[in-house]
Amino acid sequence: MTLPTRLAELVRRHPRVREYAGRAVDAVVALVAGAGVSPPGLRAGTWAARSGPALDELPIVVLECARWSQSDLAALVHLLPRVSADAGGCRFVLVVAGPQLAVGGRAGVVVEQLLGPQEWSRRHDPDGWGAYREQQLAPLVRTYRPARVVNLGEGLGEGLDAGAADPVADLVARLRQAPSLRAPLSPWQRALARAERLLDPPARPGPRGGRAARSPRR
């Protein structure tokens, strides 16, 4: 039995040791998150060819399309594999309005919700929506450490030229025009991501990028 196997067995057998080991791993993960490293394993779409540590190398792009209709969003999701390929590979986080959550989810893309102005004003001061939007996007940047955040406006006509000869090129151009928020991973950050991946394995993708069958132990 190798030393790592012995250690793992020791941790598994003793609840107290397991608890302390868990706390230590939590602390390491918090440290890595605080060091500006994107969460390892973040979904990259059902089309993604990469997996494992290679997946973590792909830059993350947040696409804000909360005011898009369901059909526009479905069209966008259909384009994403080609956009990713033409942009040299990336992982997308789609920021959508509530009813559109399933569209991106089925494609194995990470989806976040932003309440629209109308939904917001049902419970809050309508004038506060702008501040809410800022407050909602800021944690996304902290969570995902994206390379770029792109606001795609009101829908295909505005955010992406539906009549353009090549909407993929149009979208790739918009991605490149957005200010870059971070440099590629440094060797140190890459090492941290690998360490986190080992200590806190990402959830396995299920069928067609959906959820995997749950393990009884979390």
Partner: peptide, 16 residues
Amino acid sequence: FEYLPSRDDLGIGSRR
């Protein structure tokens, strides 16, 4: 309503 993505939906580790 409001949606907060689950671990499975994000694909990341449980601790993160």
